[in-house]
Amino acid sequence: MSARPSWSARPGRADHGELWGREAGRTQERLRRAGSWEERFAIAESVLARRYEAGRRVDPEVAFVWERLVTHRGGVAVERLAAEAGWSRKRLWSRFRSQVGIGPKRAARLVRFDEAAHRLAAGRSPAQGPRRSATPISRTSTGTSGPSPG
């Protein structure tokens, strides 16, 4: 068995056990027995709502780092965030990744990508904002969305 969580091998994908938790088998059986799609969606909604309500708590330091990433539009050094949170860089990476699903550096890239995409959609240059050069934006968008077609 790997020491890495199963989602780390398949970014963006979760198997039914990760999504449904301990009651995965029972939920699958209920979904199979359901007589209609409406009933299946009601079962899924009910199980997911229970899992959401019982969700894991996020460390206040992880929430703080996330808020700083969003506030600074991804333009803040992870080392600085770790120091502000009172954690070592290694602890921040470990806790952030276990609770958010990606590391803080990748999260910063996604925040920058989101900012650039919103600027572009609004008819403005995606290179404006905390990083004025188009090169980091280009790297961020290629790393986030893949190379352009063609």
Rank of each mutant, 00 (worst) to 15 (best):
P5M: 06
P11N: 07
R95I: 08
G12C: 07
V47S: 02
E38H: 00
L19C: 02
R57C: 08
A117S: 10
E45C: 03
A122F: 09
S6K: 15
A34H: 11
G143R: 04
E18H: 02
D114I: 02
W7Y: 15
I137T: 13
R26L: 02
G129N: 01
T140H: 04
A49R: 13
R112Y: 00
H118L: 10
R56K: 14
R51N: 14
V65Y: 13
A116F: 03
R106S: 05
Q128Y: 00
R91P: 03
V70H: 09
S148M: 07
R131I: 07
G55F: 03
T135G: 02
A108K: 07
K105C: 02
A107C: 10
A42R: 13
P11T: 05
R73P: 00
A122W: 01
A107Q: 11
D15V: 11
S125C: 09
W37C: 04
R30K: 07
T144G: 11
A63L: 15
A44T: 12
A9K: 05
R30Q: 02
I102Q: 14
R132V: 08
I102L: 14
R106Y: 01
S8F: 04
R33W: 01
D114A: 06
G123M: 09
G143I: 02
S8V: 08
R56G: 12
F96I: 05
L31I: 12
A42I: 02
G74M: 04
V47Y: 03
L92K: 04
V58G: 14
A14M: 15
S138R: 14
D59N: 08
E61S: 02
E29T: 00
P149S: 13
G143L: 04
R124M: 05
R124A: 06
R68K: 15
E53Y: 09
T140N: 05
E45I: 00
R32L: 09
V100H: 14
Q128R: 05
R50F: 01
R95F: 10
H72M: 10
V70T: 09
A117M: 11
A122T: 04
A24L: 04
T144N: 02
I102Y: 14
W87S: 01
F113Q: 00
E115W: 07
F113N: 07
Y52M: 09
S36A: 09
A54V: 00
L81Q: 12
E53I: 06
R80P: 04
A14S: 08
G150Q: 10
L48Y: 07
S94E: 13
R33I: 01
P149C: 03
R33L: 12
I43S: 08
L69Y: 10
F96D: 07
E61V: 00
G35M: 13
V47D: 10
